[in-house]
């Protein structure tokens, strides 16, 4: 029983890291007022670039960094359209997703089936990994998972306890007021959009370097969209993003568990759709309770800023 729990828990955490990283990034972007629906595309590009850089250099750090950077650079395309050109952010984000899907499918063809060059294997943390159950669940993960553990409180701290975070949140609430205070709203938004892309790119790299090593077309399977939904569930708070991501990972893990144990209790296809169903249910629950909550999203989310507007 305990082994089962540890097994499920470990896979649940493992399956939640990508969503968590992407959610963190999108939280930062949305907090500054930029809605980027291109997460799925940025994740794919991150995944592909991670593998490509791994094959080219054999260095896992460079591979992960390349994935993150690729996501960040792609996000800047959205930034240019959304922030500078002030186009509809939904359309621009969708275009980014399609671009990411098309580009990775196009460029990634030769990489399908080749070994990823590097693998981020589980890296047990000495001491902590030996704690019963919890050690198995939390501390026998890959380096990127540990990075995610650090990024969660870090994102929270920066957003809610620093001057930079104050400016980011203010930019997402009332850009004109921030501008009047003499702060460059668009620079903040560009920065946050880039950070959002880094998160999505890193999430993709996690998938292709650690979770299911190697490149496969559309290997993100909608996790980018799940991440965007989880931003709402998290009420734009990095700490709460953990819960959403873990719920997603938990259901994915159950799927593996039932398959591994061979229980036919729940048909496989039902298990397969559960994470998506869960995400929709989570949005319903959040919205049903929205009236009572203080925070229902940055007020200026998706609204471009223009001084002479």
């Amino acid at each position: 029983m305990m082994e089962d729990l540890a097994f499920i828990g470990q896979i649940a955490v493992k399956s939640s890291i990508a969503v968590l990283l992407a959610t963190l990034g999108e939280i930062v972007a949305e907090r500054s007022g930029v809605l980027n629906l291109g997460v799925e595309g940025m994740m794919l590009v991150g995944a592909l670039c991670g593998v490509a850089a791994g094959v080219a250099t054999g260095n896992p750090v460079i591979a992960a960094a390349a994935g993150a950077l690729a996501g960040g650079l792609l996000a800047l395309v959205h930034g240019f359209f959304a922030i500078t050109l002030r186009v509809n952010q939904v359309l621009s984000g969708l275009a980014l997703t399609i671009l990411g899907m098309g580009m990775t499918s196009f460029v990634g063809r030769p990489l399908i089936g080749t070994p990823p060059g590097v693998r981020l294997r589980a890296l047990p943390i000495p001491g902590l990994a030996d704690i019963p159950v919890i050690g198995d669940i939390l501390f026998r993960q890959s380096a990127l998972a540990y990075l995610a553990y650090i990024l969660v409180p870090l994102c929270w701290f920066v957003l809610f306890r620093t001057g930079t975070g104050l400016k980011i949140r203010a930019a997402g609430e009332d850009a004109a007021a921030v501008d009047a205070a003499g702060i460059d709203v668009n620079r903040i938004r560009y920065g946050c959009t880039f950070v959002g892309g880094l998160g999505a790119g890193l999430a993709g790299a996690y998938l292709s370097l650690s979770y299911t090593p190697g490149w496969k077309e559309s290997m993100t399977g909608g996790q980018g969209w799940v991440a965007i939904a989880m931003v709402i569930f998290a009420t734009w708070n990095p700490l709460r993003a953990v819960i959403g991501a873990f719920l997603f990972g938990g259901l994915t893990a159950l799927q593996f568990y039932f398959q591994a144990v061979g229980i036919e209790l729940i048909p496989a296809y039902i298990l397969k759709m559960l994470p998506y169903v869960l995400t929709i249910v989570v949005m319903i629950v959040v919205n049903a309770g929205m009236g009572r909550r203080r925070f229902s999203g940055p007020a200026a989310l998706g609204i471009p800023f223009s001084r002479e507007g």
Binding site: T162, G163, L166, R169, A170, E173, A177, D179, G182, I183
Partner: peptide, 20 residues
């Protein structure tokens, strides 16, 4: 030109440094 969801101090110090 005030951010409604922030406090008075936060609004006045909006342009302050990055950390403190």
């Amino acid at each position: 030109m005030l951010v409604d969801s922030l406090t008075v101090t936060e609004n006045i110090l909006l342009r302050g440094g990055p950390i403190h």
